[in-house]
């Protein structure tokens, strides 16, 4: 079995299994906790909790207007690399083919050159995020080892993907294998660190939305 076969086969399968099991474990360990029922009388006209939760999940995707200028860099930069990552994963032709081979569904893609440009911007944006994390006193004091690990395992697949696509340094098969291994690392690590926020964001936004809307507080 070549390195590429191993990466594409058992390693990726193991990583996907850890990912699925880990996410399920962490979500269920949170959501299956006995939620204490709030006995306070909701404000007249307060929306149902499920609606309020959903509304908050959507609404917090945009920055609050009164805080528009606070940490403007962080807000903009975060949009850039999140959107960049999403485009690379879901709009790059080889990725779509790969997803089709796994799940049998597919959709249209963006031209490869566009994706390469997006990847370069994403790398720059992630680099800027790291520089800011280290140089900004607020971000530095609240950051832990986990934040740097998360940064690293996110950057790695983008870099190795760019390398593989450009056929630089080494044989394409080797570069592709390394790229897939880095994706496996990302997937396997996701449930255990801050990357889990990809799922927790729905839980925390929803909880706060339901909790404050019950009071009639306008968020």
């Amino acid at each position: 079995m070549t390195l590429l076969d191993a990466a594409r086969g058992p390693v990726l399968q193991l990583a996907l299994a850890i990912f699925a099991f880990g996410v399920a474990w962490r979500l269920s360990s949170l959501l299956l906790l006995p939620f204490a029922r709030d006995k306070s009388l909701p404000r007249t006209g307060a929306p149902p909790a499920a609606f309020a939760a959903l509304r908050e999940i959507l609404r917090r995707s945009w920055p609050q207007k009164s805080f528009g200028r606070a940490s403007l860099f962080m807000t903009v930069n975060s949009y850039v690399f999140h959107l960049g990552l999403a485009l690379i994963v879901f709009a790059f032709a080889p990725h779509i083919l790969f997803i089709k081979s796994l799940f049998g569904v597919s959709w249209g893609n963006l031209p490869n050159n566009v994706i390469y440009a997006v990847a370069v911007v994403t790398v720059a944006s992630l680099a800027a995020a790291l520089i800011r994390r280290i140089s900004n006193p607020v971000q530095r004091i609240i950051s832990t080892f986990d934040d740097y690990v998360a940064w690293f395992v996110t950057l790695l697949p983008v870099l190795t993907g760019l390398a593989a696509a450009s056929h630089l340094i080494a044989r394409y098969e080797t570069l592709l294998a390394i790229h897939i291994l880095s994706v496996a690392l990302f997937l396997a690590w996701l449930p255990f660190g801050k990357l889990m926020h990809a799922f927790l964001v729905f839980v925390t936004r929803g909880m706060t939305g339901a909790y404050l809307s019950r009071r009639g507080a306008q968020l």
Partner: peptide, 21 residues
């Protein structure tokens, strides 16, 4: 945390936006 706060305690992405608030 088991009441309902565990998710809050684990979800912070350390973006630092809250400082300015």
């Amino acid at each position: 945390a088991e009441g309902h706060l565990a998710a809050y305690a684990e979800a912070c992405v350390k973006c630092g936006q809250c400082a300015d608030a």
